[in-house]
Design a protein around this nucleic acid. Structure first.
Length: 255
DNA sequence: TTCCATGTTCCGCA
DNA sequence: TTGCGGAACATGGA
């Protein structure tokens, strides 16, 4: 269930459990999760090393293993599990640590990737990832600059990882719901106040889900169904497709 | 059986 | 150049 807040939660989980332990063995249970990388290179690159710290940018997680970093992308169904006994059903890669515990990268649908990369900053540049919205340096002025001259639907822009890294379908809908903006509105037709509101609200939403580790009941996300009552104004929740994704919004208060 | 899914990429077309 | 729609990827859950 991985958009930015979920990946942040995974990063904290990784850091809490899997740092400073020697990796005795790397097991690749399904090579399709490795993307372009070859299994032997992946395994050799991490065996005998230790993860020393983790970093997150948008939906991407990086773990420092000394001369190389592990890069994880969670696709639609990726997750982490630190365990001692039973591996999770859809484990694709398992790190066996010297202490007898294991870290599994699981991903039922296999849209995720586990691979090695030399340097997260280079990865971010090469893959043209935009700024992380929770980076303290991501200020309103940066956001205004990113939106300038973009004519597409505001939801498309929020979800474009080269504009901002980390917002997916649910958080885009939630942000627009809470700012009262219709998902198809052209980005360059937002008023300055609306841009300011999107910037602030988006960050607040991301942080609040991280802090409480779940969705508050008055958020749209708890009511993603056509015909539902809007938890904010009592209007009707509508369903549409925007940027190729199922989109829910309130017909009454999102304009 | 059918539809849907918190993601990304690639292709064709306007 | 920009932006959008559609398809593909793989798999299970309702």
């Amino acid at each position: 269930m991985p958009e930015l807040p979920e990946v942040e939660t995974y990063a904290r989980y990784f850091a809490r459990h899997a740092l400073q332990q020697r990796i005795a063995r790397v097991r690749v249970l399904d090579e399709r999760i490795l993307g372009e990388q070859r299994k032997a290179a992946f395994t050799r690159g991490l065996t005998g090393k230790s993860f020393t710290r983790v970093r997150r940018h948008g939906k991407h997680l990086f773990a420092d293993a000394g001369d190389v970093w592990l890069h994880l992308h969670f696709g639609m169904s990726g997750d982490l599990a630190y365990y001692r006994d039973e591996p999770p059903r859809f484990a694709r890669v398992i790190f066996d640590f010297d202490n007898g515990a294991h870290l599994a990268f699981e991903d039922m649908r296999l849209f995720g990737v586990a691979e090695l990369t030399r340097d997260p900053d280079v990865y971010i540049l090469e893959h043209r990832l935009g700024p992380d919205p929770l980076d303290p340096n991501f200020r309103l002025a940066n956001f205004r600059a990113l939106l300038a001259g973009r004519r597409g639907a505001v939801k498309s822009l929020l979800m474009s990882q080269d504009v901002i890294a980390g917002i997916g379908n649910l958080y885009a809908d939630e942000t627009l719901f809470q700012t009262g903006i219709h998902p198809r509105r052209a980005a360059d037709r937002l008023t300055p106040d609306e841009v300011k509101s999107v910037h602030r609200t988006m960050r607040t939403i991301l942080k609040s889900v991280i802090e409480r580790d779940g969705w508050p009941p008055h958020f749209l996300t708890a009511h993603r169904e056509e015909g539902e009552r809007c938890p904010q104004c009592g209007g009707t929740i509508a369903r549409a497709v925007v940027f190729g994704r199922t989109t829910y919004f309130c017909k009454r208060h999102q304009r």
